[in-house]
Design a protein around this nucleic acid. Structure first.
Lengths: 210, 210, 210, 210
DNA sequence: GATGAATGAGCTTTCATTCAT
DNA sequence: AATGAATGAAAGCTCATTCAT
């Protein structure tokens, strides 16, 4: 609380305010992106952030806690990008979710890799349990929207997990390739993948009404 | 599974001697599947296999070497399943690659997860460099085949990375879901995903000639 | 118990304000009894008491200081129980000191164990120096009384340390046993130990004048 | 096993053979005696023994494991001292157990204090669980012997825990005193305490038949 | 009186790896 | 081919304590 007050005051004054918590997060993100979560130690974070070991544990549960905090931020930034307005047509919404993902990931390749690493590690590392649930939770809203499109007869009546896999799987697979492999065909990848996603789930025999 | 097959063959030949090397691989695979590669230590392998530390290093370069050996076997077992005969049509071959993957992974969910973990860790862990190359190498042959189909006018002229992503991405995405999420729609998932893969790359305006 | 009494008294006087200091002591005592002094951290006390770290150090020198404060109270509560009136006979006084100890310890087994832990730790932990002296000091008065009984010819002329050991050692040894081991013979243990204590130091050939 | 062979060979040659395991135990005992178990860190042991951290954990579970190993040795040394021949009279046996304890503890005051510290800490420290059981186990045989004396009508029919407390409690209490406090009356303390122990449990009205 | 951010030395423990036998 | 003692750097984490507010 004292912290808050101090920071707000600082913000008002010059907008700088490093803030121990912030500096730790920034440093950790940089390291995670650069060398991966597994290869980053708390000591690395300490050195890169200038904070003391004690401060790190004062603000976070540990390495997993830092990852969780970062992920929360990252998810926020990402989902802001891929969401069409609520009254959008199925086609617009679905294509937007794909192009949103591809563009965000293309612009933040490190973050995409990091999320992938965390997803994988969370399966076994108890420190990443929270991260695992956070990643799993992300999909609730999208599933509900898809079911509405099904009800309206705009898309194929697929179980949501299948539909999700069919629509976004190609994008994930493409983004997971090393950057060099993605060079050929990279220019229009977002549109191409979005079109494919829509083609894969649209109700056959309907006119496109973009 | 590949392991099993090999061992059974060996047993038939001379009826004995599991072999230190084999016992180490078996134990390591079990541990990797159960708790993940990262969470398994050489000491765990030693205890589970009954071999001594020295023996492990006698046969393998280290933990990464064991993973490499296991991966080679796993890749063999998997690609054996997904390969259509060389003279197969594009449709048959492509659908076979998808159903092969899905069925193998559904039957060996642990192995699939393990490969995913290794792929992710190999990006940063030098011990897994070999594993990384092995995983990357897996795709050479398939790319060549796809280019032949392109030349024959049977499939869309997509860059191979894109084509690969479009065809197999959905299957990967679906398989990566936790088992419970895969329940709905699981029955015909292999066929459904295979059909989708073919629909996504087939040359439009051509008749299907299954 | 001493605590309880004090708090109740305070409540009667002004009917309010548990007081930070009190809440810290209460929480710390609970933790010390439950998991031992060594296994309790200041952070634990902070969490259990609701006080801030700063408050704890405002009222006490540190963990050792808290223990010292608690011990003072505990000693008070205990010696209140074991003291016969000043004009009591040697037999009454000595028996009272034993039954007092046994009954208090049986009623407060946690406190007894805690005192034992503190006594042991105080031998090496500088933070517990005060505690060590407090524990040692407890015996001054009793020694003087014994010497008076010696002078009056009522008890054997033993050096006080030896007399103390002979009289109270059995009670300590019995109380230090785990509760289950104490079950057999527990009913009359206080009287039995008190009789033994008196028998061990009384001047032979004298009539008992209870 | 290779170890064993090597050590035995060394023993045959010159009887020296430091032996890593031995050197660790020796160093740890020295430190425990000097500054207590709680105040000794693994790093201290490492430095004092010349072994590496890894070696310590190769041979022992941790600090608790070292304590357990030391205790086993200590118990052996001590119980060798206090045991009368099996056909001894009750009086001889009981007095021997007391004088044995007192003399051993007087000769090894550090070990006595250490055992006391361990007993106390074992109540809460999970690392010392084994130590706790080992300490508790020590008393089985003595109890059985006492019950035989009861059956023979040589001693009072006390529950063993009570009898044990009455007989050995004074000795423990006396030994637990700081060395200075023990000075007065120290000369014949062993005999005095042994006589008191016998007097406290002997069947009244019987002749002493030492 | 009261807060809680900040400290950093120090702790126990794990681990892949080496090597003499 | 096989052993297992030995290594030591490095890891994650705890903790009593200080101090500006």
């Amino acid at each position: 609380m004292a912290r808050m007050a101090r920071e707000e005051a600082a913000d008002m004054r010059d907008g700088a305010a490093p803030g121990r918590r912030e500096s730790i997060l920034t440093a950790a993100l940089g390291l995670f992106l650069e060398r991966g979560y597994a290869a980053t130690s708390i000591a690395d974070v300490r050195a890169a952030s200038g904070a003391s070991t004690g401060s790190i544990y004062h603000f976070f549960t540990g390495k997993g806690g830092i990852a969780h905090a970062l992920l929360t931020e990252a998810v926020a930034g990402w989902s802001a990008v891929g969401n069409a307005p609520p009254d959008a047509s199925a086609e617009v919404a679905i294509k937007a979710s794909v192009t949103g993902l591809v563009r965000w990931a293309a612009a933040n390749p490190g973050q995409f890799r990091l999320m992938d690493e965390l997803r994988s590690l969370a399966l076994h590392d108890p420190d990443l349990a929270e991260v695992g649930t956070a990643l799993a939770a992300g999909q609730g809203a999208a599933g509900a929207a898809y079911r509405r499109y099904v009800a309206a007869g705009h898309v194929k009546p697929l179980a949501w997990p299948v539909a999700h896999a069919v629509m976004l799987g190609p994008a994930y697979a493409w983004l997971r390739l090393p950057a060099e492999s993605r060079k050929p065909g990279a220019r229009h990848a977002a549109e191409l993948l979005a079109d494919a996603a829509w083609a894969a789930v649209r109700m056959p025999g309907r006119r496109s009404a973009r």
